[in-house]
Amino acid sequence: MKDLISIDQLTINQVNEILDNAQLIYKDFDLNSNKLENKLLINFFFENSTRTRMSFEIAMKRLGGKVLNVDISLSSLKKGESIIDTAKTINAMKPDFVAIRHNSSGIVSLLNNYIDASLINAGDGTNEHPSQALLDSFVIRQHKKTLNNLKIAICGDVLHSRVARSNIKLLKKYGCEVRLISPPTLITSDYRIWLKNKWNIEVYEDLITGISNVDVIMMLRIQQERMIGCYIPSLAEYYKLYGLDHQKLQYAPKAIVLHPGPINRDVEISSQLADDKKVSLILEQVSSGVAVRQALLLFLAKN
């Protein structure tokens, strides 16, 4: 495979290959430093990004490649050009990799019809974010020594989270017990049915019950930019019921805490817990993301 649009494309052996290579790179970021020399990555981001865009850029440059970041505000899209024509224009410039982030679910699959380069889904709407799931699994494996049969709680704005969807797909490959914790207003009945029928996943509306004795807790950001109307009474009320702090974490004494970022302090997670490096691995996710994306670029280039 030359593209990564969905976790569905990866076999468990391919995931292991990417994570194994990422582990070697994480120990020595200069490993394979010229493997992608003279190769070009274009970051084609329609949504704001700090971690994903920067880590793809750093990853490519550490492999000896070149990076072009497309500034959407200065592109011909602002003159009325369609996204398909823009994709065709990018393709005509013969890049080797294109990473795309867009607010429309499924758009990366559409653009794959017009771009010959290795295409990487860097987040499409509420659909998927496969490289985030890979780096999350990498961090989990580093600390739990395995991905097999772990208990994972994913808590927060499930309705709007592409991170949750990709992580569910990846973690279930390893037989993990995945629990989703969400206010009833942030998950639909159809989504509940899909989770139960497809993945045998239970949805909890009580945080303490959902996180009890799990191995990993993944907190999700409240995505107010995707909300039309009122999904939660207030951020303070949300934090009271669904925000994670040291007191609530006592119900999962062996758990590590992840968050894809950016975090809303004292909304999804307390500031004290976010900064507690003994259990919070948020910054380790960031540094691991570079190694995992280096490994991903090498994997796609090979194939």
Results as ranks from 00 to 15, higher is better:
P260A: 10
L111I: 10
W199R: 00
D136F: 07
K254M: 15
I83Y: 06
N197G: 09
N197H: 10
R62T: 09
N148C: 08
L180M: 03
S137I: 00
G123N: 06
K198L: 07
C176S: 12
N213P: 04
P183I: 03
L77D: 03
A117Q: 03
A22Y: 02
K27H: 11
K94S: 08
S131V: 02
F29H: 11
F29P: 04
I201V: 14
N32M: 08
N200C: 07
G65E: 06
S287C: 06
S234K: 15
T11H: 05
N69V: 08
L241N: 15
T146R: 10
L68K: 05
A301F: 12
L74M: 14
P253F: 14
D8P: 00
I84H: 07
S189H: 09
S287Y: 08
T89C: 07
E17F: 04
M54P: 03
Y114E: 05
R293G: 04
I232K: 00
N121V: 04
V163Y: 03
M218F: 13
L220G: 04
A87R: 05
D3R: 03
I5W: 01
Q272C: 13
E128T: 01
S76V: 07
C230L: 15
M93N: 03
N264W: 12
R226D: 00
V292M: 05
R226Q: 01
P253A: 15
I168K: 07
N149F: 12
N38T: 15
I18P: 02
M218T: 10
L63S: 14
D276A: 13
I256T: 12
I120T: 03
N113D: 14
S270H: 15
K169E: 12
L235T: 10
A252W: 14
N38K: 15
P253V: 14
H143E: 06
V216K: 02
V15Q: 04
A274C: 10
I84W: 08
I12P: 12
E237V: 12
P184R: 08
Y251H: 15
Q223M: 06
R51P: 06
N167S: 11
Q14I: 02
G65A: 10
G210N: 10
I84E: 13
I211C: 05
Y191M: 09
I84T: 11
D71N: 11
L147E: 01
L281W: 12
L195M: 09
K66G: 08
L135W: 00
T146K: 13
H143I: 02
S105C: 00
E81T: 08
I18L: 03
L77F: 06
K254T: 15
I90C: 01
S33L: 05
Y26L: 08
V257T: 12
N112A: 09
T209Q: 13
L235V: 11
D8R: 12
T146A: 09
K198C: 07
V178R: 01
V15R: 02
L111E: 06
I7S: 01
K79Q: 04
T188W: 01
I84L: 10
L19Y: 02
H102W: 00
G175C: 08
L159F: 10
K78W: 01
A255Q: 13
A236P: 07
L180G: 02
I84V: 15
V108D: 00
S49D: 12
Y238N: 09
